[in-house]
Design a protein around this nucleic acid. Structure first.
Lengths: 111, 111
DNA sequence: CCTGAGGTACGAAATTGTTCGTACCTTCGT
DNA sequence: ACGAAGGTACGAACAATTTCGTACCTCAGG
């Protein structure tokens, strides 16, 4: 099964309120926009987003995204992986990722 | 044309960040959920939502929804009408209202 | 021309959210 | 075994949001 060291809510327990609260912040939304635009859904290092904020604050934001059920955080001890929970989000909130994808700076991802 | 005394952003100027911030609040989301579920899109009195908050606070919340471009507020002087900007929202953020509709207590509205 | 109902303006209090300093933990490479 | 890099925990400062009290405005009905 998919490894998910730091756990968020189950797929069918995602709460739309928590999701909107998570996406209300500009930094978190930029992370989600990037993730939504990358159809490969590869695991990413959590500093590959170059957010203009301290690492403590990044920890906070990734935690909010995880607790909203939008990402998985994979803990490697001295490094952390981020993965979009695309299937779960699509199942529970179909169309949400498309909305984010449409906000991608490069425009909608080709296919 | 549609009367819109108190104006929000133009249809193509809706900002996803503002929309998510607007929908992050529980009271505002409940209003939007009700509006999304009612396919008749009739204009509604703004106290037909019976929100458990003072009228000053309601004024605040409806203003946020209007400034996000989600509703029109029609000013009659001593009374105010609320109307969902369904077409504009659907055009700019297709699927968003469906997500809200799905949160309706009665489940998805029949038709 | 009052009065009452419905709304807004402004400002303050309370709550919530974001940010980072300091301290500490874990792993990798040397 | 050490140091450096990447992360977290805790707590405090700061910022933004929500909430409402007081005062005022507008229209409808008598």
């Amino acid at each position: 099964m998919a490894r998910r060291n730091l756990v968020g809510p189950a797929a069918d327990a995602l709460d739309l309120g928590a999701v909107f609260r998570a996406l209300a912040d500009e930094h978190r939304r930029s992370v989600m926009t990037e993730l939504a635009a990358d159809r490969s859904d590869n695991e990413r290092g959590c500093n590959s987003f170059d957010l203009p904020i301290s690492k403590q604050t990044q920890t906070h934001h990734f935690r909010v995204l995880r607790e909203a059920g939008l990402i998985d955080e994979i803990d490697y001890g001295n490094r952390k992986g981020i993965r979009l929970r695309r299937a779960d989000i699509e199942k529970r909130f179909p169309g949400l990722l498309t909305l984010l994808d449409a906000e991608s700076p490069r425009g909608t991802a080709p296919r």
